[in-house]
């Protein structure tokens, strides 16, 4: 895995190079209340976003097209950046320490690999509330929902990142033909996601063949930390990809 390679290099690197952040300082419980007020600074409108602060080398006319919602420790985000050097990817994470880890990780990666990792960045934000503040209608080409918080309790279903109301919001920021990738190790959540996305008139599920042929698919099984854990534990994964009609 590419990410691991960087971490191996990190050990060998001299002290002069910024060290990669150590995850033990950034541990945080997995759950967050997405409905509550938080002290987020969010732009009023997509035009107000200072993308230059996130991607110092982004040029006029370039924009973010991939969004990893709830990017966790950013493993998959880094993979995305490497797989798609021409595309700008954003990771959105609500947890303070976790998003800070990703931000530090990307800074360190940029320092060690001159010119690389300029196309990924992480934002601490509540994607359930502020997507339209960051992206205009039809801006995104791909969205990723990997190992989302299952919020098992029924009364917390509105907190799930995939729910009927939010699917319309995702459809708004996705361009027609754009793809939504979902992955979970919780079968019930997988069924819930498939039911809601299939019911929604603006999405259709990709067939198994088409999903298998997507070059991203194998990466989804390895890239995220959650995914790696599931692989170690020999657990099951449930992948579903949907197209914005």
């Amino acid at each position: 895995m590419v990410t691991t390679n960087h971490e191996v290099q990190a050990g060998a690197a001299t002290a002069a190079v910024a060290s990669l952040p150590q995850k033990r300082y950034y541990r945080q419980r997995a759950h967050s209340n997405p409905i509550a007020d938080h002290s987020f600074n969010y732009p009023a409108r997509p035009e107000d976003v200072d993308w230059r602060a996130l991607y110092p080398r982004i040029s006029l006319g370039q924009e973010v097209q991939f969004a990893d919602i709830g990017c966790g420790y950013g493993g998959f985000l880094v993979t995305l950046g490497e797989m798609f050097p021409e595309k700008f990817s954003i990771g959105m994470e609500i947890r303070v320490k976790v998003s800070d880890y990703v931000i530090d990780r990307i800074s360190a990666l940029r320092l060690r690999h001159e010119g690389a990792f300029q196309n990924i960045a992480c934002l601490r934000t509540n994607a359930m509330k502020y997507l339209p503040n960051y992206f205009r209608k039809g801006q995104l080409e791909k969205m990723f929902f990997l190992y989302p918080d299952p919020h098992f309790k029924r009364c917390k279903h509105k907190w799930r990142i995939i729910n009927q109301a939010l699917l319309s919001e995702y459809a708004y920021v996705l361009r027609s033909g754009g793809l939504v990738y979902t992955m979970t190790d919780v079968e019930d959540l997988h069924k819930w996601i498939v039911t809601h996305m299939t019911e929604h008139p603006l999405y259709e599920r990709l067939g198994d063949d088409e999903a298998a042929q997507d070059p991203i698919t194998p990466k989804l099984y390895q890239s995220s930390e959650e995914g790696a854990k599931v692989v170690r534990n020999k657990g099951e994964h449930f992948l579903a990809i949907f197209r914005r009609i």
């Binding site: 409108r45 339209p132 503040n133 699917l167 459809a171 708004y172």
Partner: peptide, 24 residues
């Protein structure tokens, strides 16, 4: 309460037509 004005199509209410954003 989150500063948003949302314009939803009807009867296709699953389709958001636009947002009017700027309020803080």
């Amino acid at each position: 309460r989150d500063d948003k004005i949302r314009v939803t199509n009807y009867p296709a209410t699953y389709d958001i037509h636009s947002y009017c954003l700027g309020h803080k």
